[in-house]
Computed example of a mutant assay.
Amino acid sequence: MKKFIIILSLFMVLGLTACGETTTEATTAAPTTEAPTTTVEEFNTNASIQIYTRDTTSGTREAFFKGIDFSDAVDDNQFLATGYVEVDGNGSMISSVNGDEFGIGYVSLSSLEESGLIGLNFEGVEPTEANVLNDTYGLKRPFNYIVRDDWTGMETEEQIVKAFLAYMGTIDGKATIQANSGILSIETTDQSWDDIKANYPVCSADNSAVTINFGGSTSVEKIARALSEEFSGKCGNFIADHNHTGSGDGYKRTQGEEADGANKIHIGFASRGLKLDSSEPAVTGTYGQICWDAVVIVVNGVNNVIANITTEDIKKIYDGTFTTWSDLLA
């Protein structure tokens, strides 16, 4: 009887294995950080590379294409390889590449750890916070904020936002930024919120009926939500409303064309530098840097054909010169 059970179990295992080997459709798996088990021999290197990109308002997209010396593609899809897929946020990028065995894309370093994707070294340098701070990782970019310049009829909101900006620079705020993957240094000279809160009397009032509207970059959203949730309890329990739709909207909805419309916000975020000399002429004193982040080139969790990619190779993928994974191995 024991031999029969062992043999039956073996047939069941073999049967399940055989079923797995006949499945060719890519599926969206639950995020995992486990290392892939597929070998180069098992991965179909003759398959076409499917490229994914962010929309043209994305700060992540701008940092990526400028970082790989492909600035023509920052605002114009016509320079991209045929068949590209455009997605509208870090979350969409992660789910798209997770669901495509042969996909390649790019995400914020702050999104990588829990994404289930493989982050590639860039020019031989690992994408880590330490390498961003020591300036050896090439695809770094700033996380910035911008606030309104016209606060007419929004005096209480203005005072809360000023207090919020001050809080971001305290030891308390910086610790929250760090805990949510923002890259910065905490200095011994940094003050705590307790040291400066008396300068912001608005935080002693009951602000539970006041709504502060946050928006802009999806890459900065995690940090913005954590800061606002924490700071609300320190500043009269104001309501934090988040609607993050891209770095470009961070400017448009604070000082740009939508600043006085239905989508207006009080503070916006950008995962890139502001275009101060062209399309985003922000008022001096209304913007600044929160921390650093980096862009990481990512592939599906079963793809371990490469662990490192160069500027030349990734550009050739996105401009259509390289069309199959075997092109990278030539």
Rank of each mutant, 00 (worst) to 15 (best):
D313K: 09
E101Q: 08
D206Y: 06
D277P: 01
N121I: 12
G138D: 14
G301W: 02
L109S: 06
K174Q: 14
T39M: 05
N213R: 14
G105Y: 04
F322P: 15
H244Y: 12
G119A: 00
A270S: 11
F4M: 12
T45Y: 07
Q50A: 13
S115R: 04
K234H: 03
F11A: 00
M93I: 08
T60V: 06
K316I: 14
C235K: 05
A259E: 06
W292K: 11
G91C: 09
L139C: 10
C291S: 09
F164S: 05
Y145E: 00
D327P: 01
N144C: 12
F65C: 03
N44P: 00
G105M: 09
L139N: 08
R272V: 03
W292A: 11
P127A: 05
A30I: 15
T286S: 14
L120A: 02
L274S: 05
A198H: 12
I171N: 10
I94N: 15
N180G: 15
R148F: 01
V299A: 03
Q289G: 13
I223P: 10
V125G: 07
L8P: 00
D190T: 02
E221A: 15
K3L: 14
A209V: 12
V161C: 09
F231G: 00
L329H: 10
D172L: 03
I186T: 07
I104W: 03
G20M: 00
W325R: 06
G182M: 10
I265C: 03
I314A: 09
Y84E: 14
